[in-house]
Amino acid sequence: MKEREAPDAHFTVDKQNISLWPQEPAPKPDLFPVLRKPLGLRVAFICLSLVLVTSIVLQAVFYPRLMDKILDVKSDAQMLGGRVDNISTLGSVLEKDRGRVEEAEVQMRILNTSLSRVRSQILSLRISMEQASAQISVLTRNWEEVDSLSSKIPELQRDLDKSSTLNAKVRGLQNSLENVNKLLQRQSDILEMMSQGWKYFGGNFYHFSHTPKTWYSAEQTCISRDAHLTSVTSESEQEFLYKSADGFPFWIGLTKAGTEGDWYWVDGTSFNKKQSERFWIPGEPNNIGNNEHCGNVRVSSLQSWNDLSCDNKFPFICKRPYIQTVP
């Protein structure tokens, strides 16, 4: 008879329970196993069975401990994970704290700069205080001198009153001296002009030129001397002119524009027609030939004006206002 192969043994481990069952239904017991199987095969099967049983027993014994270890490892891993999370949170907190520290460093630098400025200001204030102290010392000494002078104030007041009186007299003398200087300067100017052939009357200089010229040429000559042909503004001036002319005819600055024009003074002085009526020779101006547009002094009389043609040649009178020269 052929020997049958030993069936495979199957088992499961459920924590501490061990189950063992054959893959197929167990064969009927052989009445003669010893006779049918070789001895070596039986020994091998027994050893394998012992190894399997031993392994199962060991697993059954050590599995709970292994599971406890695994659970401990899981617990430790969870704890470690929590610590890692705490470390991550702590890292973000550290980052925030690092930013705050950097801001604090910036503020510290700003504060140091402000402290440096404050130290500089304190130093300047200290120097100013020292200077003020020195000035106070000087003022104290000056105040002591003022106290010593206070007793002399009445005497000084009397001297001041005398000085005021003297000053008033000095100012009066100065004013008088200035007036004298002006008068002397005026006389000097008048003498200077008279030495050049000018006559002085009523604040004006008059030059009686005996060189015959037409009226227009005479005016140009006066202009070259910073003057104009004379105007007449008062009876006293008219009297001065005809007496100085001594009966000789002289051009004056009287003219008119055209036949029907009004008379006017060439130096721009306003012509007083009403006042001037008594200075004309009776019957003048008559404008003979419609060509007598310029005036002259013809006779030695208050009524001495005459109108003539401007092309006639006569001596002429230049008039120049007196201007005070600066010494």
Rank of each mutant, 00 (worst) to 15 (best):
M1C: 11
K2N: 07
E3T: 12
R4W: 09
A6L: 14
A6Q: 09
A6S: 12
A6K: 14
P7W: 06
D8Y: 09
A9M: 10
V13R: 13
D14S: 15
L20F: 13
L20H: 08
P22F: 12
Q23K: 08
Q23S: 05
E24A: 08
L35Q: 13
P38G: 14
V43P: 00
F45N: 09
V51T: 02
L52T: 04
V53S: 09
M67A: 02
D72S: 11
V73C: 00
K74Y: 07
S75K: 10
Q78T: 03
G82V: 05
L90N: 07
L94A: 12
R98G: 07
G99A: 10
G99H: 13
E102W: 02
V106A: 07
V106Y: 08
M108R: 12
R117Y: 14
Q121A: 07
R126K: 08
S128I: 01
Q131H: 15
A134R: 10
Q135N: 11
N142F: 03
E144R: 12
V146K: 14
S148L: 06
S151Q: 15
I153R: 15
D159H: 14
L160T: 15
V170C: 10
L173R: 11
N175Y: 03
L177K: 15
E178M: 05
L183C: 04
R186I: 01
R186G: 04
Q187K: 06
S188K: 10
L191T: 14
M194W: 07
M194P: 06
Q196W: 00
K199F: 00
K199A: 01
Y200Q: 00
G202R: 11
G203T: 02
N204A: 09
F205S: 05
Y206R: 01
F208T: 02
H210E: 07
W215A: 02
Y216A: 12
E219I: 01
E219N: 04
T221Q: 04
C222W: 07
R225C: 01
T230H: 03
S231K: 11
V232M: 07
E235N: 14
S236V: 08
F240L: 00
S244L: 00
S244Q: 05
P249W: 02
F250H: 13
V266Y: 12
T269F: 00
K273N: 03
K274W: 07
K274S: 13
S276P: 14
E277M: 12
R278D: 04
F279I: 00
W280L: 02
I281V: 06
I281Y: 10
E284W: 14
E284L: 00
Q303T: 10
W305M: 05
N306W: 15
K313W: 00
C318A: 08
Y322C: 04
Q324S: 03
